[in-house]
Design a protein around this nucleic acid. Structure first.
Lengths: 211, 211
DNA sequence: CCTGGTACCTACTCGCGAGTAAGACTACTG
DNA sequence: CAGTAGTCTTACTCGCGAGTAGGTACCAGG
């Protein structure tokens, strides 16, 4: 498969998809700074000016990647959870959906979590936006459950901790891909719902029957 | 205060400390790639060739920074926890020490967590080493407690989740510095020890009396 | 007051990568 | 088949930053 020579003529929308896919791939492997527009264009199978003509500058391209992947992920989670159920069931569905998405979109996850989180520029905005949505979603789940977190700040920080635990566990999972998504999700569910205290005593959380 | 002109002659060891401090500062603000050796030398109050003469290349310098800060942090935690106590007390001491360190060394934490974690080069080695020590420390705590995690993999992943929750909560804390360290630590302690299930029912964890 | 060694400097080279100018190929439209 | 709109390319410019060459000030000991 020669990668050289003139590329086949394709409509703009299709090329843009190809370019975005290539960009996510390269950014996820190399990070924002180390990734070069030359490499992205090469992987996409086109030349650099096309890249600039269609997707703008490097920063714009990266921000677009983040937006696209973040949207895909939040949609995957949203479709997995039904808002009228018990809090623990909602949380469980959310975790399953989250780990399912990460398992099938490693590159997307790399871009979202590892790369975007520390390029302080305009990207943090996109990323923090998604993260904020996730956190407030969890925070709502907590406050909706009676008693528990008194202050708004407390609920928010707990949600942040939970989201962080999910992110970190997802990263760990990248290095241990032999484990199925459901197992990893169940583990986190037990940790945050039961707590070590109960786990030490042998009390575990079970999903409500098999449905 | 003119920063120009010839710098005062100082013994090598002292200069090296100054340079390291400057490097941690700049790396934490800008990240590895965006930080320039020119800026580091300027902040340190010396010229670039001195930097290269004393600390080697940019990569060596960064790795040295990570090693130094990681060591400082692990020592801070190690001195805070006594290994003969109950698991929950050990965990509590560890969390307090951790958040105490982060609170007083924001820059160090930025370098360690946000910067080092995704520059995949030789740095990941240093960082993952520290992280692995932290995780295995927690994992040991878990397996030492009876029953709970059956497999080694399970203990490790739970530990990874906990460490990640700590990291994430520390990041959140950077944006809400008005909260005292002890409060944030206690919140995480409750989350991972009691779990949401208990918290929803109003059951909270208390440190064993005031000592 | 020379001699060497260590701290310290100015002023470069040089490659890499973001972004662009200017045009060439293809295909549809009349 | 001419015109024109959209696709795609080669072949540059240009600044930034890592790393260096070749010194200058300062302080020993003889």
């Amino acid at each position: 498969m020669r990668t050289e020579g003139r590329a086949k003529r394709l409509p703009r929308a299709v090329r843009e998809r190809q370019i975005m896919d290539a960009a996510v791939d390269v950014f996820s492997r190399l990070g924002f700074h180390s990734a070069s527009m030359d490499e992205i264009s090469e992987v996409a199978g086109i030349s650099k000016p096309m890249l600039y003509a269609y997707l703008g500058s490097k920063e714009e391209l990266f921000a677009t990647c983040i937006r696209r992947e973040a949207t895909r992920m939040m949609e995957a989670i949203a479709t997995g959870v039904e808002p009228d159920q018990e809090p623990d069931v909602q949380l469980w569905s959310g975790l399953r959906a989250f780990f399912g998405f990460v398992g099938e979109n490693r590159a997307s996850w790399q871009v979202l979590h590892r790369q975007a989180s520390n390029q302080g520029g305009p990207f943090a905005v996109e990323l923090m936006d998604m993260r904020a949505r996730a956190v407030s979603l969890v925070a709502a789940l907590l406050t909706q459950s009676t008693k528990a977190p008194a202050t708004k700040l407390e609920a928010e920080s707990l949600a942040a901790a939970l989201v962080g635990a999910g992110e970190s566990l997802a990263d760990w999972w990248l290095d241990h891909p032999e484990e199925p998504a459901g197992v990893v999700a169940a583990r986190l569910m037990n940790l945050v719902w039961m707590g070590f205290g109960d786990l030490v005593d042998g009390n575990v959380w079970h999903p409500p029957s098999r449905r």
